[in-house]
Design a protein around this nucleic acid. Structure first.
Lengths: 110, 110
DNA sequence: CAGTATCCTACAGGATACTG
DNA sequence: CAGTATCCTGTAGGATACTG
């Protein structure tokens, strides 16, 4: 079994990577179809989208609902567990915004 | 210039990766010498340690103090900006701990 | 002890084409 | 439309040896 220096690493194992935090972020705002996510995430590849969704579903952070119709419709939504990530993601966003503003200020002082 | 779907990505650009969050986490607890960090981080390579420290210093999240003596002594400490990351890192840790406990409970129900 | 310099490898992530 | 299957590439991260 893998050993962790700190619980931090556990969290990063689940929501780390380039896309997962963003997917969760958007799903917290409400359920989305596969195509909608693809549009929101802009440059994500089909492969990474499906792969990330699968892993998040497996980890019980999001859930997947299939509508039996043609053409197929699949909707992803956040789970209760996934929802608990909201405050952290908000904080992460806020920090990024703040930091980039401070950096901008410094740049303009040069 | 790079475009972001969400401010989330800015933050991840600065503290993303395998080691940076951990380094910040430990430095928040107090200043550390290079060697101490290496011990705390266990499996980190010399290269990644120095490289991460350099980038964090460049981004003003940590500061580096050199003591002029033989053998050399260098101490890293968190900056004011870096300090603002504390609540987030705490939250990240807490979540990881919680999540792994829930998962453990489910495992034992099988 | 702290840091550099190389060289190397594994794997996250991407491009493309195809199916029900 | 949602998802698979392949093949491919860039780069994050590691191993090792060396310097002041």
């Amino acid at each position: 079994m893998k050993t962790y220096v700190c619980d931090l690493e556990i969290t990063l194992d689940f929501i780390g990577g380039k896309w997962k935090p963003l997917i969760i972020y958007f799903l917290i705002k409400g359920p989305k179809r596969t195509g909608e996510l693809k549009t929101l995430l802009q440059s994500i590849s089909q492969k990474m989208l499906i792969q990330s969704l699968k892993e998040l579903e497996h980890d019980k952070l999001i859930s997947r609902k299939v509508y039996n119709q043609r053409p197929p419709k699949v909707e992803y939504s956040i789970t209760e567990i996934g929802q608990t990530l909201e405050p952290m993601l908000r904080a992460l966003c806020a920090w990024g915004k703040d930091y980039s503003q401070k950096t901008l200020e410094n740049e303009s002082l040069k």
